[in-house]
Simulated assay, not measured.
Amino acid sequence: MTIQKITVLGSTGSIGGSTLDVVAMHPERYQVYALAANSQVDKLFEQCQRFQPAFAALVDAAAAAQLRNRLAAAGSHTEVLHGVAALEAVATAADVDMVMAAIVGAAGLRPTIAAALAGKRILLANKESLVVAGELFMQAVRRGGAELLPVDSEHNALFQSLPAGFAGDLAAAGIEELILTASGGPFRQHTLEQLQQVTADDACRHPNWVMGRKISVDSASLMNKGLEVIEAHWLFATPAERIKVVVHPQSVIHSMVRYHDGSVIAQLGTPDMRTPIAYAMAWPQRITAPVAPLDFTTLSALTFEQPDLQRFPCLRLAFDCLRTGGDASAVLNAANEVAVAAFLAGRIAFLQIPQLIERALEQGDLTLSTDLDSLLEKDAMVRDTVQGWIAG
């Protein structure tokens, strides 16, 4: 068996760590070529010591210098690089077979598109590649001949539930709709009055998943599900009206496909990201993952609810953006990232997040950008504008 080499973009995050768990379980199949992160020196140092990658890349120059010194003192042969160009380099290197794209936010956009153009197998956990630049990213995938495999548990579940070789023709495949499940997050049963008082720590106490703080807030607001709706549109060439969201608090069914004949095919499993990661890494084969098996005899009842768009307007805004088209979803994402950061810093209230996003969509330029530089300029402009509103 030929060992496959993997670059992990965002190795210090929860998805990156889970990816490395799968790698560690299958040393006969996988080898880490490069690890990349933003600025978390301590964790990246530990990962480098354990996996001995050829390269480590950090966006932040000062953090890279610190890591370089620590690795040198430890006698490591890992070469340390820095900057966005370094992330692109380790994502496109000839020795790399697959790239885990797990850097949160628009920062992961350039290296992920570079990996697509280089024809890599992309394990996509960076929503922004499709939310911000869906048209440009899918063009890059086609041009480079890349393999695109979704890692988000919901999209991975859809991928597993769709017919083999599905290419976006819903009618030919007999598909009625794609159904994304949502846990509902920590505020599922909160009233609007209660939502006015919630804190960042409250938002980060997800009932089912262990995630970073930004994505935890997105889950609490249902923006995460909204981003997934946009992502599903691009991944599976499916219009907004054929994508549904249902709240499923137990997070056992990860998503479903409803067919014309009344059949519903769903993917079930323990809520652990190492399952979809292992599936994407080994596809079309299946390998073992360090995940507890699903025990049906201990499951509570599986329940389902309609999402409440009045209490959680972020989901409605995402659907609106998908229908509007152009750069609407890029504006939504930029405004959301700024608003979530402000909420985590205690500068705005939870319910101000959708208010700021809606204002950005009403006042922003939603026309489609034709190249990545123009798109990123617009992204920066939206961020500056929203930060100005927050500063008052």
Rank of each mutant, 00 (worst) to 15 (best):
L222I: 03
M223G: 01
N224G: 03
K225F: 04
V229A: 04
V229K: 02
I230V: 15
E231C: 05
H233D: 03
L235H: 14
F236V: 09
F236P: 02
T238W: 10
A240C: 12
A240M: 12
I243N: 10
K244M: 00
V245D: 02
V245G: 00
V245M: 03
H248S: 07
P249G: 03
P249T: 03
Q250Y: 11
Q250A: 11
V252W: 07
V252D: 05
V252E: 07
I253D: 12
H254C: 11
S255K: 04
S255M: 09
M256V: 11
M256C: 13
V257L: 12
R258F: 01
Y259C: 06
D261V: 01
G262L: 00
G262R: 04
S263K: 08
S263N: 10
V264C: 14
I265G: 02
I265H: 06
A266Q: 05
Q267F: 06
T270A: 11
P271W: 00
M273I: 09
M273R: 08
R274S: 08
T275W: 14
T275R: 08
T275K: 04
T275M: 14
P276Q: 13
I277F: 04
I277E: 02
A278F: 07
A278N: 06
A278T: 06
Y279G: 00
A280E: 07
A280S: 15
M281N: 03
A282P: 06
W283S: 11
W283K: 07
P284N: 01
Q285C: 05
Q285S: 13
R286S: 00
I287L: 12
T288H: 10
T288R: 11
A289S: 14
A289Y: 06
A289G: 05
P290R: 07
P290H: 01
V291C: 06
A292W: 02
P293I: 00
L294H: 05
F296S: 09
T297V: 12
T297Y: 14
T298M: 13
T298N: 14
T298H: 13
L299E: 13
S300Q: 15
A301V: 11
A301G: 13
A301M: 14
T303Q: 14
F304K: 01
E305D: 02
E305C: 01
P307W: 00
P307D: 00
L309I: 08
Q310N: 12
R311P: 06
F312H: 07
P313M: 10
P313C: 02
C314F: 03
C314L: 10
L315I: 10
L315R: 00
L317E: 02
L317D: 01
A318T: 09
A318H: 05
F319Y: 15
D320F: 03
C321D: 11
L322E: 14
L322I: 10
T324W: 08
T324E: 15
G325H: 13
G325A: 13
G326T: 05
D327F: 02
D327N: 15
A328E: 12
S329G: 07
V331E: 08
L332T: 00
A334K: 03
A334T: 06
A334W: 04
A335S: 04
N336C: 07
E337F: 09
A339I: 02
V340R: 13
A341R: 14
A342H: 11
F343R: 10
F343W: 11
F343G: 08
A345D: 15
G346L: 04
R347T: 05
A349G: 14
F350T: 11
L351A: 05
L351M: 15
Q352K: 12
